[in-house]
Nucleic acid binder design. Structure first.
Lengths: 192, 192
DNA sequence: TCCTAAAATTGACCATGGTCACTTTGTAAG
DNA sequence: CTTACAAAGTGACCATGGTCAATTTTAGGA
C-alpha cells in the first residue's frame, strides 16, 4: 500500500534545488559539488541521492528548466518565417546551451532517451525543441520536397554542429549566428 | 638543456598502452580502470599520469588509432560517388564510433580542439574525416550551389545526429544506414 | 493518545581518478 | 670509473561521487 508523499520530502527537495541554484549562481555549473549543495541545504549526503539518482539527474532538472523557459519565450512570440528569424528566435536557447563546455556536453549526453520508459527532462526538452521548430518550418517559405519533420531534425543537427564548433579553437573565426545562417540557408533553401 | 628521451620511457609507455588494450579487449572501454591497467603493466599509478595527462588522454590515443585505421581502409578503396557508396565507405568508422555509448560521448567531447596549440588525436581525426569526405564530394554527382566544404561539414553533422539517435530509445525504429541515407540525400541532392 | 509500518534521513564507508614530494635510474662530462 | 643532475618512477594521500545498513520521523488506525 502506497502512502502519500510527505510534505517534508517536498521541502527537502526544494531546499536541495535552491541550494544548488545558489552554488551555480556563484561559481557555475561545472564547479558544483554535491558536498557543497548538501551542506548549504543542511542535509546529509545520502539524502541528496535519495532525491536524485545521481548528480547528473539534478543537473538535468536545473538545465531543462532554464531551457524550457527559453522555449516558452520563443513560443510566445510571433512564429519566425525566415532563416534569420528562426535563428534569432532560438538565440536564447543556443546561448544557454553553450554557456559552459560542461553544460553542452551534459546536454548532448542526455539528449536522447536511454529507454522508452525513461525520458529524462533533457531528452524531453530536445523533443520539444524539435516539435517547435517543425511547426515553424511548416509555415515558412522554404523547400517543400521533403517533410518538415526531416527539415526540423536537420536544423537540430546543424545547431548542434554550430554549437560544437563554438568550442573548437580551429573554427573560432566565424561567429555563431553567421555560421548557423550559412548552414540553414543551404539546408532549408537550396538553389540546387 | 633537454636530454633525449630514454628507451625505458618508450617501453613503459608501450606496456601501458598494451595493457590497456588487453583490458579493453576483455571488458570494453567503459569498464577500463586505471588501477587495472597499471597493475597489468606492472608500474605504479603515478607512472600512468606521467605518461598521459589523464585517463581520457589514453582513451583518445586508443580510439583515434582505431578510427584512423578505419579511414585508412576507406581511403584505400575507390572514392565513393553516390550517397549509398559514401555511407558504405564510412560504415566501419561510424560503426566503431558507436560501439559503446561511452565511446561516442568521449569522441564528441574531444571532437574539437580546445586550443590552437593543442589538437588532440580525436580532434585531428575529425579534421581528417572532414577532409576525406570533402574530397569525395568534390567529384560526386551532387548539388553544386554551395562549396563542398560546407557540404562535408553537413555530412559530419548528419552522421553525428544519426549516431546520436542510434542510442535514443525514441528513434530506434529506423536503421542507422537508412536514416543517414534519408538525411544525406536531402542534403546533397535536394529536389527543391 | 499510543502503536506501528512505511517513508525519510543519516553518515560512515567505498570506488576511482588524480596529485606530489620523494626515491631510483640513466647518462653525459670530467 | 666517478660524479652530478635530470628524467623516470613510486605510492601514500587527496577529492569527489556514490552506497547502504541503521536510525529517526511521520501519519493512519485502534
Amino acid at each position: 500500500m502506497q502512502r502519500p508523499i510527505q510534505k517534508r520530502t517536498l521541502k527537502t527537495r526544494a531546499r536541495l534545488i535552491s541550494a544548488a541554484e545558489d552554488v551555480i549562481q556563484k561559481s557555475g555549473y561545472e564547479a558544483l559539488r554535491v558536498e557543497e549543495v548538501v551542506q548549504a541545504a543542511g542535509v546529509a549526503k545520502g539524502t541528496f541521492f535519495a532525491h536524485f539518482r545521481d548528480k547528473d539527474a539534478l543537473m538535468e532538472i536545473l538545465l531543462a528548466e532554464k531551457l524550457n523557459a527559453c522555449l516558452d519565450q520563443a513560443e510566445a512570440e510571433k512564429p519566425p518565417k525566415s532563416v534569420p528569424q528562426i535563428i534569432a528566435a532560438l538565440e536564447p536557447v543556443h546561448s544557454f546551451m553553450t554557456v559552459e563546455r560542461y553544460v553542452f556536453d551534459l546536454l548532448i549526453r542526455y539528449s536522447g532517451a536511454t529507454a522508452i520508459a525513461e525520458i529524462g527532462p533533457i531528452a524531453y526538452f530536445f523533443e520539444r525543441y524539435f516539435r517547435v521548430v517543425m511547426m515553424w518550418l511548416e509555415d515558412a517559405n522554404i523547400r517543400q520536397d521533403v517533410p518538415s519533420e526531416l527539415l526540423a531534425e536537420g536544423v537540430q543537427a546543424f545547431a548542434i554542429q554550430t554549437m560544437s564548433l563554438k568550442f573548437c579553437a580551429l573554427h573560432a573565426s566565424t561567429s555563431f549566428s553567421d555560421r548557423l545562417k550559412v548552414y540553414l540557408e543551404a539546408w532549408l533553401t537550396p538553389a540546387r
